[in-house]
């Protein structure tokens, strides 16, 4: 039982971390960023470069965040901005962008799996179980991330502006909030979060140009189910991640892989606005 509990909590923490960047962008910009998977890959390769340069493996996290942020700013300006009024087209354009990023990574780094040094390895005794140290660390990191995001939204100038834009963009603009700037920063932030998440999961996965693809759909489903709120995303990660672990453990790991997608489609049919909204 203890292991099951740890599996669920750590899986939820990973899902939360991976999906947070997508959620920030959807929440503020009402835009679904299908290049999310590509940003995860960028993070993975930032971690790879960190290893190549011989830096401390923990450095991969801030490095990935910076790379993601800068790229996010550029992409928002060039590609995303013309698409605000066309949300379905934005999905397609960002998907195309994901293809482009994936191919550029392939051309620069090659198609093969790269190896990244892990900041933590091995297992420790926890709750009477020998359990992966890094997965446990990810729970702490996920928690810090959630708190940091809440703090950012509720205790900073940017957060105030962002919340104003979320509630009523026209009104916010009327109040002198530069909503274009808020959107720009948000996209950069979302890209930075995704990229950081990509670096964070590299010790668990293999680094290759398509590493983000399997995560994209699950993140997308989680964010929609969450009703686009941070507590909602935490709960959605726990419920859907938990369901995935349970199905994988007691039924079959193959069905487990479909759990999030199917469950999300059903939940959204019953509650289109997500679990924790309105």
């Amino acid at each position: 039982m203890g292991v099951l509990f740890l599996d669920i909590v750590t899986t939820a923490a990973i899902l939360f971390t991976v999906a947070s960047g997508l959620m920030i962008i959807l929440g503020v910009m009402k835009l679904i960023n299908f290049a999310h998977g590509a940003f995860l890959a960028i993070g993975g390769y930032a971690a790879f470069v960190t290893t190549q340069l011989g830096w401390n493996p923990w450095m991969a996290i801030p490095f990935a965040a910076v790379v993601g942020f800068v790229l996010g700013l550029v992409i928002e300006r060039v590609i995303v901005r013309p698409l605000y009024a066309r949300p379905l087209d934005a999905i397609l354009a960002t998907w195309g962008l994901g293809i482009v990023i994936g191919q550029v990574i392939t051309i620069v780094f090659g198609r093969e799996v790269q190896f990244v040094q892990s900041p933590l390895s091995g297992a420790i005794e926890f709750l009477g179980q020998s359990y992966s140290t890094y997965r446990l660390a990810l729970v702490a990191i996920g928690a810090i991330l959630a708190l940091a995001l809440i703090a950012l939204l509720y205790f900073t100038r940017f957060g105030l502006n962002a919340r104003a834009v979320i509630m009523n963009e026209d009104l916010a603009r009327g109040l002198g909030i530069d909503s274009t700037r808020v959107r720009l920063t948000t996209f950069g932030l979302g890209a930075a979060l995704a990229s950081m998440a990509g670096a964070l999961i590299t010790p668990l996965i293999s680094v290759d140009p398509n590493l983000g693809l399997p995560w994209l759909i699950n993140s997308f489903m989680l964010v929609l189910v969450s009703g686009v709120s941070i507590p909602g995303l935490i709960v959605a990660s726990l419920i859907l991640g938990g369901a995935q672990v349970l199905v994988s453990s007691y039924v079959s790991a193959i069905l487990g892989g479909l759990t999030i997608v199917v469950l999300a489609a059903v939940i959204l049919r019953i509650r289109p606005q997500g679990l924790f909204s309105g």
Binding site: I79, P82, L92, A93, G96, I99, V100, Q103, V104, I107
Partner: peptide, 14 residues
């Protein structure tokens, strides 16, 4: 594939 990706993004945007 890169070329197709770039074309696709350009067409959707412009």
């Amino acid at each position: 594939k890169l070329l197709i990706g770039v074309l696709f993004v350009a067409v959707i945007v412009a």
